[in-house]
Simulated scan of single mutants.
Amino acid sequence: MLERADAVLAVIPLLAISGVLVRALIGATGVATGLLAVPLAPVGYIAALAFVFRELLAGPVARQAA
């Protein structure tokens, strides 16, 4: 059975790589759109970091610590 901790650990790398994948998809469509897609790469890493902080500050870890 899939538990919450397993799902959280699976989501973190997916979020981290999502920005790079979206940037690659947009960049593959043309040269000018590649310049517009440059800021998308760090978005995935920021989303993964925000997810980790949310889990630590508002998830079951925070409830157990309180």
Rank of each mutant, 00 (worst) to 15 (best):
G34R: 05
M1N: 13
V20L: 14
G27E: 10
L25M: 10
L9R: 03
S18L: 00
P13A: 04
P42N: 08
R4P: 09
A50T: 07
L40H: 05
I17H: 10
A10F: 00
T33W: 14
V43A: 15
L57Y: 13
T29W: 07
V22M: 09
L57T: 11
A41K: 00
V43W: 13
L14S: 09
V61A: 10
F51N: 07
I26W: 00
S18V: 01
A48M: 03
P42Y: 11
A48T: 12
V8W: 03
A62H: 11
I17Q: 08
T29V: 14
V52P: 00
V61L: 11
I46E: 01
V20Y: 09
L40I: 15
A24F: 10
P60V: 10
L2W: 14
G19W: 00
R63H: 11
A28Y: 08
Y45M: 02
E3L: 13
L40Y: 03
L9P: 04
P42E: 14
L15V: 00
A58C: 14
V22K: 04
F51Q: 10
S18A: 09
G27P: 00
V43C: 02
S18Q: 01
L21R: 05
L14T: 04
I26E: 09
E3Q: 11
L57R: 14
A7I: 15
A37I: 10
G34D: 15
P13M: 09
A66G: 12
G59I: 00
A48Q: 08
L21I: 01
Q64E: 13
I26G: 00
A47D: 05
A32K: 03
R4D: 14
G59T: 12
P13G: 06
V38N: 04
I12W: 01
V20C: 06
F53W: 09
A47R: 04
V52E: 01
S18H: 01
T33A: 02
E3G: 15
